[in-house]
């Protein structure tokens, strides 16, 4: 590994991997609703298709379609312990830059909210390439399509979200996750002006709580498509949904 690559890996070990390992169970309890575009992508796969969920977290997308077979992987052992309940699929612990799959294996793959955790441009492109590598290649005659990947990353442009980031802001950020301590019940005070949809555990800290900071690279418009192109992929569909950029892409026929 090059120096910057080693540094990137060390940085992510501290500011991404160890955090998810610590917050796994609490994080998982807030992640159960599939995003509509991901759900649609999984449901439109033909019965019996074989796919990979690279960075499957607690496995919430493994529950969407039981007529396909998905091998889910995640860097976090604690998240995989939660994900393994989803029959008929299979889960394992793996790094997304060293996936244990033969090249050209899968009909489809999803990478949801994963690639934004890699800390250098080269590692992000490598992560996209790693997804393409495990997808079925298109036939040289063009008679058969290559496998398809759906990739989601967090967007920089989200001025209406409670975080309020937008164009021109810093793209590399540390995002807090607050692990709430159990405390005696207090009467809930209504706070004026505070949005009610604050996700449990993500922000405000009170006494005894523990805050973890996760590293994110926030993608700006067009950046995901560019990473895909540099990784040797072709985008067939892309868009913006609820503070995220997404794209459906296939490996190039070369």
């Amino acid at each position: 590994m090059s120096d910057s690559n080693t540094q990137g890996a060390d940085y992510e070990a501290q500011h991404v991997h160890s955090v998810y390992e610590e917050i796994a169970s609490h994080f998982s309890s807030t992640r159960y609703k599939p995003w509509p575009i991901v759900e649609r992508f999984l449901k439109e796969q033909p019965d019996g298709a074989v796919g990979a969920d690279v960075g499957c977290g607690n496995g919430k997308y493994l529950a969407v379609n039981k007529k396909v077979f998905i091998v889910g992987s995640d860097r976090s052992t604690n998240l995989i312990k939660i994900a393994k309940q989803h029959a008929p699929h299979s889960t394992l612990v793996a790094d997304n830059l060293s996936l244990p799959h033969p090249p050209g294996t899968f009909d489809f793959a999803i990478s949801i909210a994963v690639i934004h955790h890699l800390s250098t441009p080269a590692r992000r492109i490598e992560a996209v390439k790693a997804v393409f590598d495990i997808l079925r290649r298109p036939s040289s005659s063009g008679s058969k399509d290559g496998g398809k990947a759906l990739i989601y990353v967090w967007a920089l442009e989200q001025k209406d979200s409670r975080r309020g980031w937008d164009e021109g802001h810093k793209q590399d950020v540390m995002v807090p996750w607050v692990l709430k301590q159990k405390k005696e019940k207090k009467p809930r005070k209504k706070q004026g002006g505070v949005s009610s949809d604050v996700e449990a555990g993500e922000d405000e800290e009170s006494k005894g709580d523990k805050t973890f900071l996760r590293y994110y690279h926030l993608y700006k418009k067009g950046e995901l498509e560019q990473d895909i192109q540099e990784a040797g992929g072709v985008v067939s569909e892309s868009g913006y949904e609820k503070d995220n950029w997404w794209a459906i892409a296939s490996p190039c026929n070369i």
Binding site: K81, T91, L99
Partner: peptide, 14 residues
């Protein structure tokens, strides 16, 4: 372990 295979590699094999 406990039905889960672990494919994380030691640093020198990455």
């Amino acid at each position: 372990k406990e039905g889960v295979a672990n494919f994380l590699l030691p640093g020198h094999l990455v």
